[in-house]
C-alpha cells in the first residue's frame, strides 16, 4: 500500500515537471532523479507567475469583490498572490478595481510610475475597462487605458471572484509566454515614466496639450507650438499593408501555438 502511494506521488511529480523540462535535451535514465534540464525562460517565468504580488489598492465596488477573492472562500493564496503589498515599489501587479475618476487619475498614474518592472495592470470591471455605467459622468475617466497600459481586462459589474481569478490566470499565461531575451524592461531606455495628468478646468494629459490648444485658442494661436496637422485629429482607417502584417503575425502565432 505504502509503496504504491509513493510511486503515485512520483508519477504526479514527474507529470507536473514535464512542462518545465527542456524540449530536446534528454537526461540519461540513471541521472533522471538528480538532474533536470530546463530553460532560463521557464524558470524565470515560473518564479514570476508563482509569486505575483498585487498592489493593495482598491478604488470602488470591485475592490469589495477583490477582497472577497483574497478571502477564505476563493483564496488567492492558491496562486501565490495573497501577499498584497501596500507599497507600489514592492508589487508586481496593479488591479485597477473600480471607477477611475478624474480626481484620482493623477494618483493612479503616479503609483503606476512608482511600480518597478516587471509590472502588470489588470483592469477589473466595466468602469476600469471603459467607464462602465458611469462613463457619461463628468468626472469619470473612460477606462484606465487612457493613461496606463493594461494587460488584462476583466468584464463585469462587478466581476465575480471567479471571473477575477480567470483574468489572473490569463495574466499568468501571458507571463509564461514572455522571454527574458525580449522583455522590454531589460532594453535600453524602455522605462519612461508616464506623464502625470493635471487637474485643470478639466483633467488634461500633458501629451495632448497641443490638441487642446487648437480647440480652445484656435489653430492660429496654437501654431506657435509644434504644429499638429488637422488630419491627425480625425480617426484614421488602418492601412491595408498594416492589416496584412497583423494577420500574418496572428497566423504565425496560431501555428506556433499548435501542439506538436
Amino acid at each position: 500500500m505504502e509503496s504504491t502511494m509513493v510511486t503515485d506521488f512520483k508519477d504526479i511529480k514527474q507529470e507536473q515537471m514535464q512542462e518545465f523540462l527542456h524540449d530536446s535535451i534528454q537526461v540519461p535514465d540513471d541521472l533522471q532523479s538528480n538532474v533536470m534540464v530546463t530553460t532560463l525562460d521557464k524558470v524565470y517565468n515560473w518564479s514570476r507567475k508563482s509569486s505575483m504580488w498585487p498592489l493593495l489598492f482598491g478604488l470602488a465596488c470591485c475592490a469589495i469583490e477583490m477582497i472577497a477573492t483574497a478571502a477564505s472562500r476563493y483564496d488567492l493564496a492558491r496562486f501565490g498572490m495573497e501577499v498584497m503589498r501596500p507599497s507600489p515599489r514592492q508589487s508586481d501587479l496593479m488591479i485597477v478595481s473600480g471607477t477611475v475618476t478624474k480626481k484620482m487619475a493623477p494618483a493612479i498614474v503616479r503609483i503606476y510610475n512608482q511600480m518597478a518592472e516587471p509590472r502588470y495592470v489588470l483592469a477589473m470591471g466595466a468602469c476600469a475597462t471603459g467607464g462602465g455605467p458611469f462613463k457619461e459622468g463628468y468626472s469619470v475617466v473612460s477606462g484606465i487605458d487612457k493613461y496606463i497600459p493594461v494587460d488584462v481586462y476583466v468584464p463585469g459589474c462587478p466581476p465575480t471572484p471567479e471571473a477575477l481569478i480567470y483574468g489572473l490566470l490569463k495574466l499568468h499565461e501571458k507571463v509564461e509566454r514572455q522571454s527574458i531575451t525580449t522583455v522590454p524592461w531589460y532594453r535600453k531606455g524602455a522605462n519612461e515614466a508616464i506623464p502625470v495628468p493635471v487637474l485643470g478646468p478639466d483633467i488634461f494629459d500633458p501629451r495632448k496639450v497641443q490638441i487642446i490648444k487648437e480647440q480652445t485658442l484656435g489653430a492660429a494661436a496654437a501654431a506657435k507650438g509644434p504644429a499638429v496637422s488637422k488630419a491627425r485629429l480625425q480617426p484614421q482607417p488602418m492601412a491595408e499593408d498594416a492589416k496584412a502584417r497583423i494577420r500574418a503575425a496572428q497566423a504565425k502565432y496560431r501555428a506556433q501555438k499548435q501542439p506538436a
Binding site: G131, K135, E136, G137, Y138, V140, V141, S142, K146, V198, L199, G200, P201, D202, I203, F204, D205, K208, V209, I211, I212, K213, E214, Q215, T216, L217, G225, L233, P235
Partner: peptide, 25 residues
C-alpha cells in the same frame, strides 16, 4: 462612440480661450 466626437478622445471639456501651458491650479 463618444470618444470619436471629441478631438482629444477623452471625457473632457475645456473652456474657450483656456491655455493649458499657462495653467496654474
Amino acid at each position: 462612440w463618444h470618444e470619436d466626437k471629441l478631438p482629444w478622445g477623452d471625457n473632457n471639456t475645456y473652456p474657450a480661450g483656456w491655455d493649458p501651458d499657462s495653467w496654474e491650479a
